[in-house]
Design a protein around this nucleic acid. Structure first.
Length: 477
RNA sequence: GCCUCCUUAGCUCAGCCGGUUAGAGCGCCGGACUGUUAAUCCGUAGGUCCUAGGUUCAAGUCCUAGAGGGGGCGCCA
């Protein structure tokens, strides 16, 4: 194909020279002005057609959604609204688009409608902005860890472990489901399956990351994660991407510092690299919130909220301190909580987390040292034998964005917890080996990538920040 | 899995206490105009009122069940 210049670059290119651009028509105004977008940036290039000198049959084919190759001279724009425009000298229709049946129109569409045509929603301003921001965040994550000498570990997606400890799993099998091999006692004979054992899609790369950390010191994973829970919320997906750093010679405070530094780095990174997209998303959010009653609107605009997070230290407090605040809070005393806080030991509901983050502290909060009963077996026991060195990072509007802990590195204590929580130690001997052979204090956490994208873009449904969301009852596209 | 709301033209939505032939804006199509910015102006076409039952003289409207979607909760990242 002919060499093309991206729309993003043509805005900075020298005028009075000829260029070739390729992209998709957003609108064709006045039989004269083509708004061309190639996804390289939010803005469209205005290409000007001399309709009096053009073939009417060609003009007919310039419809919303059609793909074009346009050659012409770049000039300083004669109209308002853009700095430069391309005087189209030669237009080639690469792909026609029947405007009568093309679902996207030059108007505002609902997010619900666009979700149903997820294969086309990339072509909208909102979704192209979201996915450019998503890319920047993914790239920023690798840059953050690379700059700190972390090693990127590809933890397995198919796992033979049933005990990753994070919920329902999708089974992986090569069996013919209409003819499953069985043992003499009638049970399924997994020895005949592809891997010779029962296998699942991973729910966490943490255990494998720990193995890496106990040799490479600083590692992280960043990969797809699968949960077969029947979760129907705007914060859950069945297939999502998770970042899991794991650090040797680190305690809970080091872990909190890393989490806070990482989130702030990423927010800063996106503010610096996606200014135009964030400005657009901020405006979109503002328009959307105009529909809501005053009390439900956010107090800050998107970029203001992001900047605010950078400037404030995250509030760090223990579960026990949080319970005290909640117990004495106005909504608890007035019976406004659906689940009233009565005694120490109760699991916090999202209404409690939201109160702490959005009403009490009004900033990101890190809650630590939860009761051992409500946390996973691998978290390090505190000296009081009641709480563990867990940490949850809570963000406004999102809730839990990070869950992590200092790990139990003491062999005997870990084994005891596994027995208490009915984790089959014999199947986990490879994990226990790390505590047998040169164990060290270490810590790590899991960051839900889509939840971060939600926060940064100001979107409210997690299904809108992943290209093709998977959730109960839906695996379209 | 639980609670709740919604489903009317391609899209966004109105449709009153159940009562004639179901409406608007945008889009499409036709025409006018030609430096527009989701262009504008005029006109045409476009409907399984989500589906299946039921109540009624009469159902888009009421009732029951189902499907799809939104929001909230639980599980969590």
């Amino acid at each position: 194909m002919a060499k093309r210049i991206r729309v993003k670059d043509i805005f900075l290119a020298e005028t009075d020279k000829n260029y070739t651009v390729m992209g998709w028509v957003r609108t064709f105004r006045n039989n004269q002005f083509i708004a061309l977008n190639d996804g390289s940036c939010l803005a469209n290039l205005q290409a000007v057609v001399d309709f009096e000198q053009s073939d009417p049959a060609l003009l007919k084919r310039i419809t919303t959604g059609a793909s074009l190759k346009i050659e012409g001279k770049l000039i300083t724009s004669q109209g308002k609204g853009q700095s430069v425009e391309l005087i189209a000298e030669n237009i080639e229709v690469l792909g026609d688009c029947d405007a009568e049946i093309y679902p996207l129109q030059p108007k505002k569409h609902s997010l619900e409608f666009l979700r149903e045509i997820a294969h086309l929603r990339f072509r909208t301003n909102t979704f192209s902005a979201i996915f450019r921001v998503r890319h920047a965040l993914a790239f920023g994550i690798h840059k953050f860890f690379n700059d700190r000498n972390f090693v990127y570990i590809h933890s397995p997606i198919v796992t033979g472990s049933d005990a990753e400890g994070a919920g329902e799993m999708f089974q992986v099998t090569a069996f013919d489901l209409n003819n499953i091999p069985r043992s003499e006692d009638g049970s399924i004979n997994y020895k005949k399956d592809f891997f010779g054992k029962h296998t699942n899609l991973t729910v966490s790369g943490q255990l494998e990351a720990e193995l890496g950390a106990l040799a490479l010191s600083d590692v992280y994973t960043f990969g797809p994660t699968f949960r077969a829970e029947n979760s129907n919320t705007s914060r859950h997906l069945a297939e999502f991407w998770m970042i899991e750093p794991e650090v040797a010679f680190a305690d809970l405070t080091d872990n909190m510092d890393l989490a806070e530094d990482m989130l702030k780095y990423l927010i800063q990174y996106v503010l610096g690299h996606c200014a135009e997209d964030l400005a657009f998303l901020e405006q979109r959010l503002l328009e959307e919130e105009k529909q809501k009653p005053q009390i439900e609107r956010s107090e800050m605009a998107l970029r203001e909220k992001l900047t605010f997070c950078l400037e404030q230290p995250f509030e760090r407090l223990t579960y026990t301190e949080a319970i005290d605040i909640l117990k004495n809070s106005v909504p608890n005393k007035k019976g406004k909580f659906q689940y009233p806080i009565e005694k120490w030991g109760a699991d916090l509901q999202s209404e409690h987390e939201r109160y702490l983050v959005e009403k009490h502290f009004k900033r990101p909060v890190i809650l630590t040292n939860y009761p051992k009963e409500i946390k996973a077996f691998y978290m390090r026991m505190d000296d009081d034998d009641k709480t563990v060195r867990a940490m949850d990072v809570l963000f406004p509007g999102i809730g839990e964005i990070i869950g992590g802990s200092q790990r139990e590195e003491r062999y005997d204590k870990l084994l005891k917890r596994m027995e208490e929580m009915h984790i089959p130690a014999e199947e986990m001997s490879w994990f226990l080996d790390t505590r047998r052979y040169g164990t060290v204090p270490h810590a790590g956490f899991g960051l839900g990538f889509e939840r971060l994208v939600l926060f940064v873009t100001g979107m409210s449904n997690i299904r809108d920040v992943i290209p093709f969301p998977r959730f109960p009852g839906n695996a379209e596209f």
